[in-house]
Design a protein around this nucleic acid. Structure first.
Lengths: 230, 230
DNA sequence: TATGCAGCGTACGCTTCCGTACGGAAATAG
DNA sequence: CTATTTCCGTACGGAAGCGTACGCTGCATA
């Protein structure tokens, strides 16, 4: 039996997995690929294998900011799990990768047939909600270097090696700050030898030290994941 | 038949309501009363009638900040609806009031007996999640006056008259800023004639103008509520 | 090999909000 | 009625991050 790269699928029973696998299609998702559009029905749900997607909100001034991050530990389309068809946020790939795609209709059917499947996906929805809440905490209370550290750790958790491939520009959208502020903050980490910065990529060198900077702004949803899914 | 003050209960069918009403107990909730404690099992769930409760997170420095607001449109214990027993946040009364209280166990039983009840409560959970996400947006992108306007509007939606009873100190915890910053920001609104400020209370005089200040930082979860629950 | 562009480093004045703090006014208790 | 506590108004220096902008560099294309 093939082990799934996606940690939600890896946690499912063989029966529940079988319910989903009929509808699965493996897809490549390039950077900037749009998984969900605000207030439009969600047609497909993606169980990420590699790569990272962001859930992003836009305000009235056209400014964007990230409210959630999804990688191999999760899925897009949490709204579908909650019995809904759309959400006010957009979701797109931040770092390219692959995923198993299933139609929202097929997922709904599978969930209605298996309480244990529904249970697991609802648990993930709660973790995702906790992530959004902790993002609110970080945005309200943390300094830029702490928020940057938090984001790097969350991204690091979701990539296979130590390299996070993205530009300062993208990162600035995630954090809701200027591109120049990101450059400066990254430079501070670089000078302390905690990361390596290249054009279009950041390599994590000293994760422990970065965790110290992030402090309690990192780790709450991650602990919930371990508790609820394992 | 008695109409329920709580808007979730008001939206339920007679059958679903009957499932819950056996377990209900009407309770008075004073300001500062704690409904949920971080990482402890949730014993009771409250369908608010009057008053306002806050879901609050604490960071490693002991600073607090609000991630969600609950009034007559909702319930505490969203975590129970998602099939869980606890959450990393605390919930307590911000403005005293009354609620219908039901044990988490009874709520779980009722939900398992009625898919339509589960559906409605899940819809509320999604609205609550949207609120947390929008709080992240506001904390990351909005200026203090915008966030204050947003909070006043959300509180105003949840009280019967135009008076919101709370101190600057409480409000500063909600917004995650200094008490003095709240005083200054309120003063600016007062000078424009949009609110009246008294010791321990704020009266909304010109809601439309306050909505203009809040801009798109207010209204997203409210629209979701209308769409999903009505 | 030249050209263009996306991405990065840096700089400067400015705004917002913080940390701290002091004093006065309104409510509450003795 | 006095004492005490809670709450509110205000002030000042300072830090963080913004808006803007200019120039350099690595990579891709022709």
């Amino acid at each position: 039996m093939v082990k799934h790269l996606n940690r939600l699928l890896a946690a499912l029973s063989a029966d529940d997995l079988a319910l989903l696998e009929l509808g699965f299609e493996k897809v490549d998702l390039e950077r900037r690929y749009v998984l969900e559009t605000p207030n439009k029905a969600v047609d497909n749900v993606y169980f990420m294998e590699t790569g990272v997607a962001s859930v992003v909100a836009v305000n009235g001034r056209g400014e964007r900011i990230e409210v959630g991050l999804i990688g191999c530990e999760g899925m897009s389309g949490v709204t579908v799990v909650m019995g809904n068809h759309r959400s006010p946020h957009s979701t797109y790939m931040q770092i390219g990768g692959t995923a198993l795609c299933i139609s929202a209709a097929d997922l709904r059917t599978a969930m209605s047939q298996s309480p244990s499947l529904q249970r697991l996906l609802l648990h993930f929805a709660q973790i995702f909600m906790t992530q959004a809440a902790q993002t609110a905490v970080a945005n309200g209370r943390a300094k830029l270097d702490e928020r940057l550290a938090r984001w790097l750790l969350m991204a690091h958790d979701r990539v296979s090696d130590d390299e996070v491939q993205l530009t300062h520009e993208f990162l600035s959208v995630m954090l809701g700050v200027r591109r120049a502020s990101v450059t400066t903050a990254l430079d501070a980490l670089k000078k302390r030898g905690l990361i390596e910065v290249r054009r279009g990529g950041i390599t994590v060198l000293d994760r422990d030290a970065i965790e110290k900077i992030a402090g309690s702004f990192y780790g709450v949803p991650e602990a919930e994941f371990r508790r609820l899914i394992g």
